[in-house]
């Protein structure tokens, strides 16, 4: 394929990606979430107090079922998400029932540290590539040739 034809093909690919993704996005449901969607989202992020790290959606024990019912009830009664969470937390005092760690305070570190670590890693990699690209003379030295000759001879 000639370079011009290839560039045209890439333009086509790019255009297709943009158009198709646009179609997908335009079709996305932009209306505010319904009551049952909100309730489902809350259930998916609320842990069951007695079942070791499962959310109330995943567990069928009575405590999970009662929290599901409570969430449905409060959402139907017109509570905001934050209010529903508060009611649930108050029903089971002393337990961390939100599956989402807080974004602030000491607990916020759990969000920040991975980003910092990845950024530091990426920066280190960039620096390493810089350093490597500045290694000027990478031709074989006389010592290298001797080494290779010896290795060949000993085969």
């Amino acid at each position: 394929m000639s370079p011009t034809a290839r560039n045209r093909a890439w333009m086509g690919v790019l255009l297709a990606v943009v158009v198709v993704m646009g179609v997908g996005l335009a079709r996305a449901d932009s209306s505010p979430p319904t009551l049952s969607e909100r309730a489902q989202a809350l259930k998916e992020t609320t842990l069951c107090p007695v079942c070791d790290g499962q959310t109330v959606v995943e567990s069928n024990v009575p405590a999970a079922a009662s929290i599901r019912a409570l969430i449905d009830e409060r959402v139907a009664a017109g509570d905001t998400d934050a209010q529903v969470r508060e009611v649930v937390e108050n029903t089971f005092p002393g337990q961390a029932l939100s599956a989402i760690p807080p974004g602030d305070g000491f607990g916020g570190l759990v969000w920040v540290l991975p980003i910092v670590a990845l950024a530091v890693g990426a920066a280190a990699l960039v620096l390493a590539f810089r350093r490597w690209s500045s290694v000027a003379d990478r031709r074989a030295t006389e010592a290298d040739r001797v080494l290779v000759a010896e290795a060949r001879a000993s085969r």
């Binding site: 998916e44 992020t45 842990l47 790290g53 959310t55 002393g94 337990q95 961390a96 029932l97 939100s98 599956a99 989402i100 760690p101 807080p102 607990g107 759990v110 969000w111």
Partner: peptide
Amino acid sequence: QLSVGSPY
């Protein structure tokens, strides 16, 4: 007490 669940 703090939980880190699937959303994280």
